[in-house]
Design a protein around this nucleic acid. Sequence first.
DNA 1: TAGGCCATCTGGTCCT
DNA 2: AGGACCAGATGGCCTA
Length: 205
Amino acid sequence: QDAAEAPSSGDSAEPGAPRERRRRRGRARARTEALLHTLKRSRRVKANDRERNRMHHLNAALDELRSVLPTFPDDTKLTKIETLRFAYNYIWALSETLRLAEQCLPPPPAFRGAAAPPSPGSDAGSWLSSASPSAPSLCASASGPSSPHLRGLRLRPRQLRAFAGLPLPPGSPLYCCKITNFPFSPRLCVMGEYSDPQNPTVCSS
DNA sequence: TAGGCCATCTGGTCCT
DNA sequence: AGGACCAGATGGCCTA
């Protein structure tokens, strides 16, 4: 197993030589191991550095995502998982809003007469129109009375987290977002649960 | 004080 | 071989 311990043919010629040779080989092996250790260590340190950098970039991207998500209050910091879930819900809510707006508003003059308004992404339109048919329409409620208990509602961070933390599949009746330049109102806040389609929880903020 | 969140380290795996 | 990515472990910090 240990080649260093095996006697060589020349050992008998010089009585003190085998021990000295063993010692030399032991020192050489120790040096090699130390070298290997430092090499491994330096590789590990470099890998740690890269990994740290990678996570920093990931966090920076997450921060960018946070910065475009509407939160109440504005300085609320969502956790990572909340950010991802909220983004998912927010995208769903925006596309749902777009779909409803297309239903409620006459097409722009440029699009009149056309079979269908052109969409920037070819499959975006089909995706938008595939939203859940069970989702209630906002059209009637937008000009009508809104839910009194949600008027001017500002969610506390914990409540917001409860909203953001919910895993909502597309078409789910629950979402929370703030939309500017919405067709019905320059600043419309949509949040809450559509338990009753006749009384959608829509409020102006 | 327990639990949640986070940053970092680490070893394994896959890819170039 | 080296880098990217991933998941598990660990310890620190904060909050209810």
